[in-house]
Amino acid sequence: MASSIKIQKIAELLDARIVCGEQFTDSEVNHAFASDLMSDVLTLESEQLVLITGLTNMQTVRTAEMADINCIVFVRGKKVTPDMIEVAEDNNMVLIECQYSMFRTIGILYEAGVSPIY
């Protein structure tokens, strides 16, 4: 059984900035998936997961929308654009900007008990 973690806690652990969806940061996630390839994200069947990615474009948010992913952590200091925020807000999504590398981000979350999907 995976342990769950609040989105707020994820942002704290990563010393990261919540860009939008502050009102949903009390919700919990069980799993994380890290990928810059959206095709892989679209094959996942899990829910309540956080997506960790360095890909910052509209298609990242659209992919999350279709895959029922409510939280995206953008790593390597990537910046979210206003049109991404618009779609994220429309879908009650939390977007987080993190300065850490993907490896460091994943390590911290793994240590905190966030489970892989497979």
């Binding site: 810059d36 390839l37 959206m38 095709s39 892989d40 679209l42 094959t43 890909l55 474009n57 298609q59 990242t60 992919t63």
Partner: peptide, 15 residues
């Protein structure tokens, strides 16, 4: 570069 083009689209549509 947009995060696609890995040859998974049509098979995933079928699935």
């Amino acid at each position: 570069e947009m995060g696609f083009g890995a040859g998974m689209g049509l098979p995933n549509m079928k699935r």
